Simulated assay, not measured.
Amino acid sequence: MRVLLLSAFVAASAIAAVPSGAHADAMADAKAILEQHKKMPVFDPPGEAFDAKSCMAGKKVLSIPISMTIPFNVELQKAMSTAAKEVGFTYTTWDNQLKTDQWIQGVSQAISQKYDVLDLAGGLNPEWLGPQLTEARSAGLKITTTHLYDVTQKSAPTVDYSSRVDFTEAGKVLAAWAFVQTGGKPNVLIVGSSDVLPSVPFVKAIQDELKALCPECKQKHLDVPVSDWATKIQPGTQSALLADPGINYIIPIYDSMSQFVVPALRITGALGSVGVAGFNGTPFVLDMLREGQVNMDIGESLGWAGYAAIDNIMRMICGKPEVAKLNVPLLIFDKDNVKTAGVPANFNDGYGDAHLEGFRKLWKLK
């Protein structure tokens, strides 16, 4: 009896010693998170199948990206347009160069041409166009967003449906990667941009997961607005490295930031000894990974994302429930598989094409 009581006491003490929210076996849990995102993506239907062609007959969608000067938006729009053509409805991309008056003109065009849906894509915040979107809704348009909000964020009151991205999951993966790669002793510098709408929950997910995996480990946050990336990321990173030579991993949350992080590592002599990992699967960053300047990049196929965004827009028009998140898998690219993304890399290679067959069946096109 005394042995049983002692065993129970030891077990209870061990459980109590684990902080709330912390991982009991942090290394095993971190590796499990990574394994989920190292496999070739499979298609997981975001909802029930429906007759998209019949439902979308005669419908018109106009999409306003934040700017068509950004390759990300060009690729996303190309995929959304291709998906719309497969179904057979009118899809128009409103070309613009990151100017407010051009966005406003796009909204006016959607109203005057009697479109059914106005989509704000690739980072265009609906709160920047509040009065115009209110007018559009009064005219009978539905408002959607594509690739803007994190899954934890609520849409603006002017928005009917949102194709949210799981930035929170990407944050957990980045934290797990840094933890595993440093042998469970990460000292991390997170480079973020709080002026980008999903950045706050994205950074928080990294911070929270690091604390859960390693409550005593160190982390810092360098916050740089997008407009200052070219002038402030490099000196900010250099200052952080000089102030704390123990930093062993840098997480630029949007992988394009890496082009300013790597020079700081080179100047401080830390290139090769301090790891770098980010999110987006931007081709030039994947090339940097292949060349050994970056260690890991979480990618998302923009071809897949475009089809997923059209799926969500159609579900709104066809009276189906909004999906919880954009149906796009997150895939880890590292030195072992980065060549599958192409040489040079592109936005779509390396992910397979399971989404094409998957969405066609889901929309009852075959």
Rank of each mutant, 00 (worst) to 15 (best):
A16E: 11
A17L: 05
V18L: 01
P19A: 12
D25G: 13
D25N: 15
D29Y: 05
A32G: 14
A32T: 12
L34V: 05
L34P: 08
E35V: 00
E35C: 00
P41C: 03
F43S: 03
D44L: 11
P46S: 09
P46T: 08
G47V: 00
E48L: 08
A49T: 10
F50H: 13
F50D: 14
D51I: 05
D51A: 14
A52Y: 01
A52N: 00
K53H: 07
C55L: 04
M56Q: 03
M56R: 07
A57V: 01
K59S: 05
K60N: 02
K60V: 01
V61Y: 11
S63T: 15
S63L: 07
S63I: 02
I64P: 10
P65C: 00
I70D: 15
I70C: 01
I70G: 04
F72E: 02
N73A: 06
V74N: 07
E75V: 08
L76N: 06
K78F: 02
K78V: 00
A79T: 03
M80Q: 12
S81A: 12
S81K: 12
T82N: 10
T82M: 06
T82V: 08
A83L: 00
A84Y: 08
E86Y: 04
T90F: 15
Y91C: 04
T92I: 11
T92G: 06
W94V: 05
W94L: 09
D95K: 06
N96G: 12
D101W: 05
D101A: 13
D101T: 15
W103Q: 01
I104P: 01
Q105F: 00
G106T: 02
G106Y: 03
V107Y: 11
V107I: 13
V107Q: 14
S108P: 06
I111F: 10
S112Q: 10
S112M: 10
Q113W: 07
K114N: 10
Y115F: 14
D119Y: 09
G122E: 01
G122F: 02
L124V: 08
N125V: 11
N125G: 10
P126N: 09
W128M: 14
G130T: 14
G130D: 13
G130V: 09
L133S: 15
E135Y: 10
A136F: 15
A136M: 15
A139D: 07
